Computed example of a mutant assay.
Amino acid sequence: MAKVLVLNASYEPLNITSWRRAIVLLLKGKAVEVEHNGKLIYSDFPLPTVIRLRHYVRVPYKEIPLTRRNILHRDSHCCQYCGYLGDELTLDHVIPRSRGGGDTWENLVTACVRCNVKKGNRTPDESKMPLLKNPRKPYSSLYFEITKHLKTGMHQEWQKYVIGA
Rank of each mutant, 00 (worst) to 15 (best):
G38I: 10
I95S: 12
G102Q: 12
R99F: 15
T67C: 00
F144G: 01
K160N: 04
L27D: 11
V162S: 05
G101D: 03
L26K: 05
S140T: 01
G83S: 14
L131C: 02
E88T: 13
L72P: 01
S18G: 06
G38R: 05
L40N: 07
L108A: 14
K148S: 09
I163A: 10
A9N: 02
F45G: 01
C82E: 00
R114G: 12
L7W: 02
Y42L: 01
S76M: 15
K118N: 02
T17N: 11
H73S: 11
W19P: 08
R74H: 01
Y143V: 05
R74P: 01
S127D: 04
P48F: 01
I64V: 10
Y161M: 10
Q159D: 09
C112R: 13
E63N: 07
Q159C: 05
R21L: 00
G86C: 11
Y143H: 12
I41F: 06
V117K: 15
P13N: 09
H36C: 12
M129C: 09
V6A: 05
S43E: 14
T123A: 07
Y11M: 03
P135Y: 08
T67G: 03
H93S: 06
N116A: 15
G120K: 14
L89I: 11
K151P: 02
L108K: 14
Q156P: 04
H93Y: 07
R52D: 07
W105D: 08
L47H: 04
A9I: 06
R99L: 15
R74F: 05
A31G: 09
T104I: 06
C79G: 00
V34N: 13
K133C: 10
S141P: 02
G102D: 13
G153C: 04
G29I: 11
Y56H: 10
Y143C: 06
I64S: 08
N37S: 06
Y81W: 11
P65C: 06
Y42Q: 02
M1W: 05
V113T: 13
P65S: 05
E126I: 05
V32M: 12
C78M: 15
T147H: 08
V117H: 15
R68N: 10
